[in-house]
Structures are given as C-alpha cells and as structure tokens.
Design a binder for these strands. Structure first.
Length: 704
DNA sequence: TTGATCGATTTTTTT
DNA sequence: AATCGATCAA
C-alpha cells in the first residue's frame, strides 16, 4: 500500500514533479510504481520512458521490480545509469562529434596513463604536480560541462597546475585519436550531439515522453544540462532526491540542482515524502538530531510510526584491532538470533575494511566485502581485457601498452617510449609502428624476435575470434602468450587466486555473443552481480557504497577525528557538512540496531597513535544512547566503566603489588602492552610494544 | 632490460 | 604497513 503522498507522486501527471524523499520513505517504490502506472494508464509506452539512476544496481533493481509486475514489456524502458544511457545514445550518433561507433570507454587507469604520458612530454615536474591532480581537475571540468576550448583563465588559474588547460586539450585530442572516451566524455559528447544536431535532440525529446531521475541530489552540472535539454519539450520530468543525502560533491555533484529545479521548470509540483518506514524511532531521532547541525539544508521532519526500539549503542575500544576483534565477538554472540546478511559494518574509507576482514577470518565469521576490489578491476582481469581490446581494435594503444611486455618479452620502457614517439610523428598507432619497424629493419635482434611473435599472436587471435566463442579465445590467449604460466610460476597464494579469478572470468564469458558485446558491458558495469548475495554473510563496505541499502543491524566504525570526519574534509570548505550528511546516510541504513564505535588509538601509516573521538559523537542525542566501553581500557564516556576499572586496580594491588613489576609484561589502558625496564618508586619505565619507552604511574598498569 | 633496493608517500569516497 | 617510483648494478 502507498500512503497519500506516495500515491500522489505516482499519479501526478501534469508536468514537472520534484519528489523530496527523505531516507527510508519508499522512494524506489514510488519510482517503480510510477513507471508501472504510466504504462498501465496508457500515458506512455515502455519505450517512451527514460529512467536514470546512478548505479547499475539501482537500475537493475528497478527494472527487475517492474518486470515482475508487467512482464517483458519492461525491457523496452530505457533505464540505466547516466553513463550507460549516454553511451547508448552516443553509439547511435558518433559521427556528429567525430568518433566511430566502436569507441572504447577507458577507465581511470588508462586515463591516468595517458595524462602521465602527456605531462612527461611537456616536461612538467611530476614530483610537484602529480598526474592524478591533473586528471582530477579535468574530470571536474567535464562534470561542469566545460570543454577545453570553453575554459577561461579563471577556470584553471587557481588550481596551481601548470599548463592545465593545454594538457586538458592534448588529452582530449589524444583520446579522439584513440577513438576513446572517458566517463565524463560520455555525457559531454551527448551535449555536443544535442547542440550540433537539433534534429537528434528533438528526436529524443519526442521519444522520451516521460523522464524519471533517481538520486537527483547527486547529479553534476553536465548531467543536469543533459536532463534539461531532454525534458525541455514535454517537461514530463520527475526527479527524486534528498539534499541531506548528497555525498558526491567531490565528483562534481551539485545540491543546487535540486534548488533550481523549480526555476528551470515552471509550475513544478513538489511532493514531500516524510514518513519513514525503515528505522526505529530512536534511530530516526538520532539521524535527525545529527543532520540538524548542518546549515545548508531544507529543514524537514521525518517521522515514523515505529516503536522506540533499542537504544543506540556507543562503544569505545582501545585500538582498531580490538575494535574489529570485539565487534566480531558481538556478532558471533548474535549468530543464530539474527541473520548475518542483515548486519553491515560501515567504514569511512576502504582501507578500514582490512582489520575487519582479519578479525572475521580469525573468528570464522562469514563475511563479504561489497564494492572493495571489484572483479573487473583486478589486475589479471584487466590484463586479459587489454588483450581482448587489442584484438578487437589494434589501434587501442592504451591497452597495447599494458600488455606489450606482459608477460615479459624484453620490451622495456625505453623501447616503448621510442615506439610511441615514432607513432606520434607518423600519426599511426603503436601496433602499426611496431609492424613497420619489423618490416623496415629498425627493430632488430632479440627485440624483433619477441615483437614478431607478439604481433603474430595477436593476428592469430583475431583470426581465431571470427570462428570461435569468446571463452575459447581467452583460453588460447592465456596459454599461447604464456600469461597464465607467468602466474603459475609465481607459486604464491596471491598468484593462485589470480589463476582462480581467470578461470572465473572465462566461465563468465559464456553469456556474451560477441567480443564487442562483452567490451561494451565491461566498461560500464563495474561488478559482476555476485552469486554470494543470497548467502548468509556479514556485509562490510564503505558508507558510499551502502547508499540505498538497509540492514537490521548496522555498525558505524572508526568514528574518530581524521577518519570520520576525514582529515581532508576538516580542511575543505563545506567539507564537514558533507561529512555529516555521510554520517546521516550511514545512520539511516539501520532498521533496528545501531552501533557506533571508535578506537582510542590507531595505526596510521604504520604509526601507532592516539585517536580522538569524532566530533559527531558529541552531536548525538544523549538520552537514547547506551554508552559502553570495552573492558580493557579507560573510557571517557562512561562512569560505570571507570568504576569497574578501579575495582580491577584494587584487586591487582592486593594480589600483585608485592610480586614486583620489573621485567614483567604489562598492559596500559592508553599505550597497550609493554615491558617494565625500571622502577622509580611509584613510577615505572616501560618499553611499549607499539609506542616505545614511556614513564607511567604504577597504578595505571596491569600485570599480564 | 631487468630485478633489487631504497626512500618517499600514502588514506576518502566512484560511475 | 604497504605500495610506487626512481636509481643502479648485472
């Protein structure tokens, strides 16, 4: 059943509609119901509907739900991520922007390789001006819809990156020569298509009678312009968003797109969804209380009919090891009572997952890391894909560079650089340059032998791929080039798992009819829909990848200054507000139980150091908190644990004070384990295992 | 050209 | 702690 506002949002058909949907208010249901309603009421046919999301997962889920209700007709709906839809459109009109329809979509790795090449040629000091800063800035330009020729000095001056505009321009022309586009280009070229060809634009304006956009607060300027153009004729655009959940400004997202929606589309109807169906009222209260600290937001009141539920648990640990270790213990105790798959550990940054992985392995708790190292991003998989790219398109220099000396063929950096500059001079691809060099004798000896074999291999694979299935092709590549052998020779557990991944990769290829099909798929779909999803495992992931998900029990961990909020966000303008929204998103993932944890010490860049509790913890509503501390240390939040701790001390002093501390292993609440090397009255000299020698009062250590 | 070694640098977040 | 890049000997 839909509530009154949801129903209205589904049925409203008189032009632009903005749905401000708070966390857990059922926006996905509204979106899918609306699409079904459009079709069932004959307002639009499936192929006249455009539904845009940010993640493949969201798009997939939406489509799946609609298919369940109206069957195969749903297949004609244009639904997908901004990038996949833009790619689909660009494939139909590539000539307008001067590329071919078999363009390659390159990922961040390739883009970075290209930028590095360019800044090397321009002799820019990479030490002071790293390539990735350039790449980042260029991506931001693209997010704003700014092409190199449209830049004016104020756009790039303040970035303190020499020759930024020039590099951007060269980067674009190189991509064009390679018949390649990056993620940002997909949208950017769409805009160019629409500008250069009003007919094409009009075709899509007419085609898409109804446009629906999910997560509208995460659109960047380029996507915004794209939507504006497509919707400007019929103005049947329905955007769903929540300014409190905007967490992608670092990728160019602009909250103001929500604010200006009303101005861009006259007579916009605004519907607010404020009834939360997900969380207990305690969790909701916690989230609302936190987000109120932000200034830049629309004030809104989420409410719910749910019970208070459990209190929010706030737990403090000695260090990140005991944090992960004891959380594993807590979960172990819960096992049997609740499903593990209904538990999530949410971290601020990817590297934090490691401690949990280790703790879960130690406690033999099943877990999965969502969004971590994605399948198609693994090195061995990218290598094979690079082979496929070269086979599909021998002019794909970026892919060729990746594999020309993999496995090792004796083609070193010097040779590659030489070949590249030769290629640049003659305006020909790397592949062609190599071939030419072999023929005209400029490549000689061992080098010639190796490169001839390589070129022949590629041509053979090309031939083979015309007659054979994709998985057979890959098997041949792995065997004939010695790539598989390379890993097998390594004989490490790591290499073994790479071999396994390659096997998995081969079996995943069965679904694809052609190489072109596969390459299209792989460039835009980042992860294989993993089959482990149904298994009962604890979920570990970053908060960003948890967006849109919900779990019975959620642990938000590492709530410390410098981690959450992240150290960078503390310095950035508006950084803290976004960080707080991130916290808000994290809190509202929880349906029933919420644990907030932090460690008092943590290893940062290999150094064990004190870690301050996050400022966000002081923004929590105290009355619904249940504050606990791990038994091992002093905790500033909880007088109860202090008392318990001092009990421990008195017990110790009775039993152990006479036995002497010298040369004994001790534990200190703040510094951890150490060995006593000297006693001066009440003071002890201790060499701590992690922090070195310190002077500490006798009363503050326990014998182990 | 390769592999070893040293030192610098790193940690947001992702389509 | 772990990775990346620069440097150098073989």
């Amino acid at each position: 059943m839909l509530n009154k506002e949801q129903q209205e949002a589904v049925e409203y058909l008189d032009g632009p509609l903005l749905i401000l949907a708070g966390a857990g208010t059922g926006k996905t249901r509204v979106l899918t119901s609306r699409i079904i309603h459009l079709i069932n009421s004959f307002e639009a046919e499936a192929h006249q509907i455009l539904a845009v999301t940010f993640t493949n997962k969201a798009a997939f889920e939406m489509k799946h739900r609609i298919e369940n209700q109206i069957g195969d007709g749903a297949k004609n709906i244009w639904s997908g991520t901004f990038h996949s839809i833009a790619s689909r459109i660009l494939k139909r009109h590539p000539e307008i922007v001067g590329i071919n329809s078999d363009f390659t979509i390159i990922d961040g790795d390739d883009a970075l390789r290209l930028i590095k090449q360019i800044i090397n040629e321009l002799e820019i000091d990479v030490k002071n001006y790293p390539a990735k800063n350039y790449l980042y800035q260029i991506q931001r330009f693209k997010d704003k819809g700014l092409k190199p020729e449209k830049l004016n000095s104020k756009d790039f001056h303040h970035h303190n990156l020499p020759k930024l505009a020039q590099i951007y321009q060269i980067y674009q022309s190189r991509l064009k020569n390679l018949n390649a586009v990056d993620f940002g280009d997909l949208l950017l070229y769409n805009l160019e298509v629409f500008e250069k060809s009003p007919d094409v634009l009009e075709y899509y304006q007419n085609k898409f009678q109804h446009i629906l956009v999910d997560e509208y607060q995460d659109t960047n300027n380029c996507q915004y312009q794209w939507l504006l153009k497509l919707a400007s004729k019929y103005k049947n655009i329905c955007a769903v968003g929540d300014d409190d959940q905007s967490i992608y400004s670092w990728r160019g997202a602009e909250i103001k797109n929500i604010l200006r929606f009303e101005k861009d589309f006259q007579n916009t109807k605004i519907i607010r969804l404020e009834q939360n169906y997900r969380c207990t009222s305690n969790i909701l209260k916690c989230a609302s209380h936190v987000i109120k600290n932000n200034n830049q937001r629309h004030d809104k009141t989420l409410w719910s009919e749910a019970n208070e539920g459990e209190k929010i648990k706030l737990i403090s640990f000695f260090d990140e090891r005991s944090e992960s270790q004891e959380i594993a213990q807590i979960i172990d105790d819960l096992q049997g009572k609740i499903k593990l798959s209904e538990i999530a550990i949410l971290v601020r940054a990817g590297y934090q997952t490691r401690a949990f992985e280790e703790a879960f392995i130690a406690n033999s708790l099943p877990y999965r890391i969502i969004g971590g190292l994605r399948f198609f991003e693994r090195r061995e998989i990218k290598d094979v894909i690079a082979y496929l790219r070269v086979i599909f398109n021998e002019s794909d220099d970026l892919a060729l560079q990746r594999i020309i000396n993999l496995p090792k063929r004796g083609i070193g950096n010097a040779t590659i650089t030489k070949l590249l500059s030769q290629g640049a001079n003659t305006n020909s691809s790397l592949f062609l340059t190599v071939k030419r060099g072999i023929n005209n004798g400029s490549i000689k000896g061992k080098m010639k032998e190796a490169l001839t074999k390589f070129i022949n291999d590629i041509e053979n694979f090309k031939e083979f791929s015309r007659q054979n299935k994709l998985d057979e092709l890959v098997k041949n590549i792995l065997n004939d080039t010695g790539y598989l052998q390379m890993w097998k020779n390594e004989n490490t557990p790591d290499a073994a798992s790479r071999v396994e991944n390659l096997k998995e990769f081969i079996s995943s290829l069965e679904d694809f009819a052609s190489l072109a099909d596969f390459l299209d798929h792989v460039s835009l779909v980042t992860n294989t829909e993993n089959e482990t999803l149904n298994k009962d495992m604890v979920n570990i992931m970053t908060i960003h990848s948890a967006k849109g998900l919900e779990f019975d029990t959620v642990f938000i961990v590492g709530l410390e200054e410098g981690i959450f909020p992240s150290s960078r966000s503390i310095e950035e303008r508006d950084g803290l507000e976004e960080e707080r929204r991130l916290f808000y998103v994290a809190i509202t993932r929880a349906k029933k139980n919420l644990y907030l944890t932090h460690a008092q010490n943590r290893v940062v860049f290999g150094n064990f150091q004190a870690s301050l509790a996050s400022r966000f913890l002081s923004e929590l509503p105290q009355d619904i908190l249940d504050v606990k501390s791990s038994d091992n240390f002093y905790n500033s939040y909880d007088s109860f644990s202090m008392k318990k701790k001092s009990d421990n001390f008195s017990y110790q002093s009775k039993e152990k004070s006479k036995s002497g501390f010298l040369n004994k292993r001790i534990f200190h609440q703040k510094f951890g384990y150490g060995k006593v090397v000297e006693i001066n009255g009440e003071k002890l000299e201790i060499i701590f295992e992690k922090t070195g020698q310190k002077t500490v009062m006798k009363n503050f250590v326990q014998l182990q």
